[in-house]
Structure formats: C-alpha cells, structure tokens
Design a protein around this nucleic acid. Structure first.
Length: 200
DNA sequence: TGAACGATAGTCT
DNA sequence: GACTATCGTTCAC
C-alpha cells in the first residue's frame, strides 16, 4: 500500500550533524524533513541548501562573531533549529559546527513527499512546483514557524530522517546576498541537479 | 524611541 | 529583470 512507502522514519542521529558545515550542507540533500503538527504530518526531501560560516562570512547573521538574541542559537550545538523571520516570512536553518562556532545551513527548497494535501491547504498554489521551491515557501507549506526556534532536528516533532542519495549534486553562489562584499561569490549553495523544486 | 535594513515572494513590465 | 509590501531585529541616539 502506498502509505507504507511513506510512513515516517526515525530521526537521524545527533552525530549526523557533527560534520563540517560545507559537508553537512551536501549531506542534507536528499534527506527527509518531517514536521508533525496537530493538523497532521508533512514531509519533503531537501533538494537545496546554503552554508553560512559564521565569523568569516559577511553574509551570515553571525559575521564577526556577532552575538545577539536572534543569533544566540547558532553558538549552540549542531542539530539545533534556527528559525528567523524575513519580511513576512519564516526561514529555517540547521545549526552546524561546535559550541561557540556560529555556523548554519539554510534549507532553501524541498520536494514534497507526504502530506501534500495539507501543504496545499496551508499554501494554495497553482502549480505543484511552487509549493516548496523557496525558503519562505517551504516553511509555510510545512507549518514551520518561529515557535520552532531552539528545537532540534533529531527529535520530534520537527526532524530530519534518511531519504535518498542524490545521483548528482551541483554547487554555486548563494542567492539574495549581493551586498555582502566578497562573500557574495562564495560557492556555498548546493542543490540536486535537475530537481524541479530547486528555487532557481 | 526610532530608523534602517534585509538569507523573500509576488506582481508587473 | 525591476519594484515593493511589510515587519521583526538590530543598532544608533
């Protein structure tokens, strides 16, 4: 039965997140992001990520070890959930690296897998691909909010589990950070080649 | 206390 | 491709 293929899996181990940020950004591609809410379960494969490497990255909120209420979570352990609001949207990051190393990976796009009806209810769209092909879009479709700030990606209700292994990964410059000097050109964006849900 | 600033999305050209 | 709605965070005064 179809449901069996789409049964929720176990969250990944905490140890999974303890790899260098750029490695983690690549490793996350193909993994399943799951959110269990009162409305139901929704999940999607991660198909696009961006790395933000704290102290030396002018595009990162934690550039120069800037420590504020908002960025505080980035100084914590790998695998924590860092959400923040941008205009009217909420964006979600995976905290990486060690304690006091403020690095993170932004989840930019998902390929819907489970709870697609629920996602469409949360975020009505004309075409399937517009459901989760952007960082602000996927959070709305998945029901992710600022309430999730400080949670972990290795425990319910919001977690990451095994998915599939992408056959080919592409790498390029990040999006939307053109006022960040030399950091603008860092090739720290990763995506699954050819996947229709990649933001651009 | 206030003003400037976006890791965006949607609309229009 | 350009323009902007819109609001929490950050920092200056």
């Amino acid at each position: 039965m179809e449901m069996n293929d789409k049964m929720p899996k176990k969250p990944l181990n905490k140890q999974f997140f303890q790899q260098p940020t750029l490695e983690l950004a690549k490793s996350l591609l193909g993994c399943l992001l799951v959110n269990e809410t009162e409305e139901g379960l929704s999940a999607g494969y991660i198909v696009e990520t961006e790395a933000y490497i704290g102290p030396h990255d002018r595009a990162a909120h934690s550039y120069g070890n800037r420590r504020t209420k908002r960025t505080e979570i980035m100084y914590g352990q790998a695998g924590l959930v860092y959400t923040y609001s941008m205009h009217t949207h909420c964006l979600i990051n995976v905290v990486s690296a060690g304690i006091d190393e403020p690095e993170a990976v932004l989840i930019r796009a998902l390929e819907p897998v489970t709870g697609i009806g629920l996602m469409k209810k949360r975020r009505p769209v004309d075409q399937m691909k517009n459901l989760t092909n952007g960082p602000g879009k996927l959070t709305k479709a998945m029901g992710i909010t600022m309430e999730d700030y400080g949670r972990t990606f290795y425990e319910r209700p919001l977690y990451i589990s095994d998915g599939y292994s992408p056959t080919e990964i592409e790498q390029g410059t990040r999006i939307g950070i053109q006022n960040s000097g030399e950091a603008r050109d860092y090739p720290w964006r990763f995506w699954v080649k050819g996947n229709p849900y990649v933001s651009r």
